[in-house]
């Protein structure tokens, strides 16, 4: 189990990046498009900010560079999750789920809708 001291709550953008890469390795522009699609315009993505986060995640051992697939643009860097990255993403998802459950228990969700 990763302990919470090594991995404090992830930044929303970091969590988004990890989620996009859960399915398969991808590259920068595709990641941005995917996040923008998923957020439906609620989140403004500043590209350099995104790539800085990606770099940070790499430095923490959560992402790694992957070989480019056949026929892809050779200039592009493809990224995928490391086993540690997959674990942290899962822990964060669980933490958020627990958080939402607690909010629900406190009637927060009902209040928000009413």
């Amino acid at each position: 189990m990763p302990d919470s001291r090594a991995h404090p709550p992830l930044h929303p953008l970091e969590f988004r990046i990890l989620m996009v890469l859960t399915a398969e390795p991808s590259y920068g522009t595709a990641i941005v498009r995917e996040i923008e699609r998923a957020e439906g315009g609620r989140m403004t993505i500043y590209p350099a900010n995104l790539f800085r986060r990606i770099r940070d995640l790499s430095a923490r051992g959560l992402l790694e560079e992957c070989p480019s697939p056949e026929g892809a643009d050779p200039r592009r860097t493809y990224l995928g999750l490391t086993p540690a990255g997959r674990r942290v993403a899962r822990d964060e998802a669980r933490r958020l789920r627990d958080l939402v459950r607690e909010a629900d228990a406190r009637d927060l969700l009902g209040e928000a809708e009413g």
Binding site: G28, A48, F51, R52, D73, R76
Partner: peptide, 14 residues
């Protein structure tokens, strides 16, 4: 490192 790895992506998005 940032420019080398993500330069083309940044440019495309721009």
């Amino acid at each position: 490192d940032l420019g080398r790895r993500f330069g083309p992506d940044l440019e495309d998005l721009f």
